[in-house]
Simulated scan of single mutants.
Amino acid sequence: MLGGLTLGRFTGGDPSLLRRINSAVVLHALRDAETPSLTELMRVTGLSRPTVEGVIEGLAESGLVVEVPPDPADARKQGRPARRFRFHAEAGHLLGIEVGAHQVRAVLSDLSGTPLGSHRHDVDESASAEERLERVRGTVAELLRRSSVARGTLWAVGVGTPGIVEADGVVRLCTALPGWTGLPLGERLQRSFRCPVLVENDANVAVVAEHWQGAAVGTDDAVFVLAGLSPGAGSLIGGRLHRGFGGAAGEIGALHLLGREVTPEHLLSTTGTPLHPLDEGAVARVFALAKEGDPQALEAVNRFLRRLVHDVAALVLAIDPELVVVGGWAAGLDGVLEPLREQLALYCLRPPEVALSALGEGVIATGALRLALDHVEEQLFAVEQAPLARR
């Protein structure tokens, strides 16, 4: 490993491969530093000065590196000031998109993942697939317009959506969004962009987001619970996203299909008949009544929390995470966190830490952005092919 970049085993005799390795190593060092000099890059990478200079020249021609003005401290020294360089994060842009039941949210960043703006639009829960896709396009167009960013500068787009998502971006099953099951979401959105579009389950990108810059920073074994009417979960095992064989890992909300008596409509009913309509507003009213001491509402909330605990406990027992992060709209309701802690302590052999999401409503779009950033970094630091290759 050199500068955080795993090089693996390579044989000599291939100058082009060696150039790609050197380019990836120098670029990685530039990403990790602010404005290093040639001497500092030589020290970090272990490469000779002519090699570093040659790599810098090539990266500058590609637009990925720019020279910065001399440091005032260097200018005060005798002799020529040291030449300094930085990663040109503005050379391209990344987009993270959340497609949810009630909203579409998009966040824009440069190539370092630094946010440049965000935009959201409400969408009706009953909207058709075409209407929802049109709302996505409109949200993205407005964000790009407000940020004065050309669509052609996008290097990758990440998308988080409810449902079981195949590796090719097809939504295999989704009960939350009308017309979403079977939708080739990646292909449909690809028509709007000239860059790779990567689609992933919303809870999966949420756990990636929390690991990147939220409650799970520094924790490589974590579960994110997207707590709603039908909870879902995303899991990191050893710092890697666990999707399962077919992308269905973490679909703990499916446990209610084992018996109608535990469906959300029955769990949250205060009258003995199924709650209808079953939406977030109706559920919020039940929780509000429980807070006021209404006995039927209290029992309904307790049933809901017990089911959530059972679902989460099943996953915790299976993978033994260090941390469970709770997000989604139910996380904002009073009383959800402490019962989770108490009940998981009863059900689990080694109770995990439990925390609320640090990213709130933006967690899915942030995770989708990280998905795009991961893709670009794989391209930038690749050694099997030219690191600047883009589809």
Rank of each mutant, 00 (worst) to 15 (best):
G3R: 07
G8R: 10
G12V: 06
I21A: 08
N22E: 14
S23V: 07
L27C: 02
H28E: 13
A33E: 06
T35P: 02
S37Y: 06
E53T: 10
E57C: 05
E57M: 09
S62Y: 01
L64V: 07
V68L: 04
P70N: 04
A73V: 05
D74C: 01
R83P: 04
F87C: 05
G92H: 08
E98Q: 13
G100Y: 00
G100N: 02
T114L: 15
P115E: 15
S118V: 00
E125Q: 02
A129H: 01
E131S: 02
L133M: 09
R135V: 01
G138R: 07
E142R: 12
R145S: 07
R146C: 09
R146N: 14
V149W: 05
A150K: 09
V159A: 09
V159G: 04
P162E: 07
G163W: 09
D168H: 13
R172Q: 13
W180I: 08
G182S: 07
R188Y: 12
F193Y: 14
C195W: 09
E200H: 11
D202E: 15
D202G: 12
G214D: 03
G214R: 00
A215T: 03
A216H: 01
A216F: 02
V217I: 09
V217E: 11
D220V: 05
D221H: 04
A233S: 14
A233P: 13
S235N: 02
R240S: 15
G246P: 04
H256L: 06
H256N: 06
L258T: 01
L258A: 03
G259F: 13
R260V: 14
T263A: 15
L268M: 15
A282H: 09
F287S: 10
F287L: 07
L289T: 03
G293P: 03
D294N: 13
P295M: 08
Q296S: 14
L298H: 10
A300N: 08
V301Q: 06
V301D: 11
R303H: 12
L317P: 00
A318C: 11
P321F: 12
E322K: 10
G328T: 07
D334V: 13
L346E: 08
P351K: 08
E353Q: 14
A355K: 04
L356G: 05
G360Q: 03
E361P: 03
A365W: 02
A365P: 03
T366L: 13
T366S: 14
T366Y: 08
T366R: 13
L371W: 07
D374G: 12
D374M: 13
E378R: 15
F381R: 09
P387I: 04
